[in-house]
């Protein structure tokens, strides 16, 4: 419950090397589980009422969460997808080794599917090279998980 007070809206997150993202969101869609380097991973689409993003599930997280679940992420990380070495543009959110994702509810959360932070081209900030800024929008909506209309 304590984490509730400190969750940040998804729209405010930017890529970083730190595990410092606390957010609450609803899972909208889930892809197929694949095994890479002996680890199960699965890409999903999650969103809150400010933005959507691709959330990467690891190990038994792949079976634990289903679309419609509301998740609380503590100490998560938003960085370029490690599973796709040939695609540095694709940034995904994940719990990482130091973070934790837990199911805290179902259904009762409003969301938007655009902007999608994983469909944005991020580049380093000319003023502060340690920071990332949005350079271009690749697509307003997820190109992997299509909106359901």
């Amino acid at each position: 419950m304590e984490a509730e007070a400190t969750v940040q809206p998804l729209i405010s997150i930017a890529p970083a090397v730190q595990n410092n993202i606390n957010a609450k969101f609803i899972m909208l869609d889930k892809g197929r589980t694949t095994v890479e380097w002996n680890t199960k991973t699965c890409l999903s689409l999650v969103a809150d009422d400010t933005a959507a993003v691709h959330f990467q599930l690891w190990g038994d997280e792949c079976e634990a969460f289903e679309p419609g679940d509301i998740l609380l992420l503590s100490n998560g990380i938003f960085s370029s997808s490690s599973g796709r070495s040939n695609n540095n543009h694709h940034h995904v959110l994940r719990a990482g080794k130091r973070g934790k994702a837990e199911k805290v509810g179902e259904f009762a959360m409003v969301f938007v599917e655009t902007p999608n932070l994983s469909e944005i081209l991020w580049g380093s900030d000319p003023k502060d090279s340690r920071k990332y800024v949005q350079q271009a929008v690749i697509s307003p909506y997820s190109t992997i998980f299509r909106p359901v209309i």
Partner: peptide, 17 residues
């Protein structure tokens, strides 16, 4: 709470459950 036009996913979840 759900806007008319954005209900599809909720309907799918409700029906599935």
């Amino acid at each position: 709470r759900v806007k008319f036009g954005s209900q599809k996913r909720y309907q799918v979840w409700f029906a599935k459950k």
